[in-house]
Amino acid sequence: MTGPSPQTHHVGITVSDLESTLSFYRDVLGFDVVDRFSVAGKALSEGIGVENASGTFVHLESGGVRLELVRFEPEANESRESALNRPGTTHVALAVDDLESFYATLPDDVETISEPRTTESGTTILFVRDPEDNLVELLES
């Protein structure tokens, strides 16, 4: 490849309930809110390929990662199955120092796939779901 390489700017998650999802990432996972804004108009609609689109965005940061939560109008009616072994499934991965302690502090209403497990590679992992059913991996290596 010639020329400068792209640099990571953010990881984005489209949500239906922005406030509930924001609370999860801010209050449960400890992200800091760094920006909140709305965008509408022809350029957005053309850029995302959705007629008459508008979006409300929240940018959060933790450990040098910027996470973008966005709620779009109009909202698509399509649903997707989110299983880790399904091609196209995505997840956000976050590192913690002590996964067992972190797990012990999770609110009871946070859905987990299992308790923390140490894989053959020596990495301890825990998958949880945010309020929109998106997968979040927490890991300690």
Rank of each mutant, 00 (worst) to 15 (best):
R86W: 04
N134A: 10
T21Y: 02
V70T: 10
L18A: 06
R71V: 10
K42I: 13
I113G: 00
N134R: 10
Y25K: 09
P116A: 01
F37T: 08
L69D: 02
S16P: 00
S54E: 15
G122F: 11
S54I: 04
I48V: 15
E51N: 13
L94T: 08
A76F: 09
E81L: 13
P107K: 03
L99Q: 07
A93S: 14
V28K: 07
L99Y: 03
G63C: 05
A83Q: 14
R86Q: 13
V128Q: 03
L126R: 08
S62V: 04
R117V: 14
V50E: 07
F72Q: 08
T90N: 08
L60S: 04
S114T: 14
T90W: 06
V65G: 01
L44T: 01
R129C: 06
G12A: 15
G47K: 07
L126E: 07
F127K: 02
R86K: 15
E137G: 03
T123R: 14
R71F: 04
P131T: 03
G55H: 01
T14F: 09
T118N: 00
G88P: 06
N77D: 14
L18D: 02
T8G: 09
T112L: 04
F57T: 08
S38Y: 05
A83K: 15
S20G: 12
